[in-house]
């Protein structure tokens, strides 16, 4: 293991400290065990929006705290769900009497613990409900879409829910529009190299120097198959074919595209991905109305990228482009 770290057991807490020191007006560390990150200035008079999940995906999850985004977030260990307690702390922090929406990426531990946190909140007369993000088309068939893993689509769902809450939507309205965003998202990734969890000390999986794996998950879960690496255009075409097979594009469809780096890929290569994807999508008549390229949902030092498409309507577009104050989202 070759990393700029101290004690692996303190890795998460020390990174959180670094984030709070870098953005002292936005992030504050809270909770009994220091595993709740929250806004420095709590919002008032709106529906709360929170999330939580394993660490090692910065900016996902806690990085998306900010005005027009999340109010608070529970932080687990690297690639491991937080327990229920910081989730409950996040819900309580975010509750201003109008209820709280929990945006949960579709992993067993995250779901089960958020279920418990929502039940606990109910005992304190706080209404807390979940929206599940399950956008990774490679992780289950269309028939079993509910079993799909949540990946970079989380970023869009958080932005939409955060903007809706800031505009004064009620809890059920925020949940509905977040669900719509989630339903409209499709993602697929490609991995070129593995990553090492500090507490494990060894690479999570092994992949040959000349191989790529399409559809690999952000913790190294198996994808749809390995192949020899080709040109970036060929790889993008394969990724798009999976996305468009799952949800065929119609001429005139309006979409947002997120070309996301997994942590170990130069931004230059991400621009190459965007270049090809835009040409191919426009070729079938899709209008790309909102383009983002960068590291939005990572997997430690894994090399690779993902493409997320979100079908837009007027409401989603308004919320997606609404102002937000978050270090990882430029307006």
């Amino acid at each position: 293991m070759k990393k700029l770290i101290n004690n692996p057991d303190k890795y998460v807490d020390e990174v959180l400290e670094g984030m709070a020191l870098t953005y002292p007006d936005i992030y504050a560390i809270g909770g009994a065990t220091g595993r709740m990150l929250h806004r420095v200035t709590p919002a008032q008079d709106k529906v709360g929006v929170v999330s939580g999940g394993g660490f090692g995906h910065i900016p996902v999850f806690a990085g998306y705290i900010g005005e027009g985004f999340l109010d608070a977030c529970a932080v687990g260990d690297v690639f491991a769900s937080p327990d229920m307690n910081p989730m409950l702390e996040s819900i309580k922090f975010a509750d201003k009497g109008k209820g709280v929406l929990c945006i949960v990426a579709n992993y067993g531990g995250d779901r089960m613990n958020f279920d418990m946190a929502c039940e606990m909140a109910e005992m304190d007369d706080i209404e807390a409900i979940k929206v599940i993000v399950a956008d990774d088309v490679a992780s289950a068939s269309k028939e079993e879409a509910k079993k799909r893993r949540g990946v970079a689509g989380f970023v869009y769902v958080s932005k939409i829910a955060g903007a809706a809450a800031a505009k004064g939507y009620t809890l059920s309205q925020v949940a509905d529009v977040a669900q719509k965003a989630s339903d409209n998202c499709r993602s697929i990734g490609v991995a070129l190299s593995s990553c090492t969890v500090p507490q494990a000390g060894k690479p999570t999986f092994v992949i040959a120097e000349d191989e790529i794996e399409i559809g690999m998950g952000i913790h190294g879960e198996p994808g749809v198959g390995r192949s020899k690496i080709g040109t970036v255009d060929e790889t993008v075409d394969k990724m798009l074919s999976h996305l468009l097979a799952d949800r065929p594009a119609q001429a005139g469809d309006r979409m947002a595209i997120l070309v996301n780096g997994l942590g170990g890929t130069p931004i230059e290569e991400l621009y190459l991905i965007l270049r090809r994807a835009k040409a191919q999508l426009e070729d079938v008549g899709v209008k790309l109305e909102h383009i983002r390229v960068g590291n939005y949902a990572t997997s430690m030092e894994m090399a690779g990228a993902s493409i997320t498409l979100m079908q837009l309507d007027d409401e989603l577009e308004t919320l997606l482009t609404a102002d937000a104050v978050c270090p990882f989202w430029e307006n």
Binding site: A80, D83, M84, G109, M116, M120, M123
Partner: peptide, 27 residues
């Protein structure tokens, strides 16, 4: 509330499935 506080204490030390199920039962 007493049973809920026991559940919270249980989940705070363990993410294992048995701990989660014990907490679920208490809740």
């Amino acid at each position: 509330q007493a049973l809920f506080s026991a559940a919270k204490a249980m989940t705070a030390v363990s993410g294992s499935s048995f701990g989660t199920l014990m907490a679920t039962a208490l809740m």
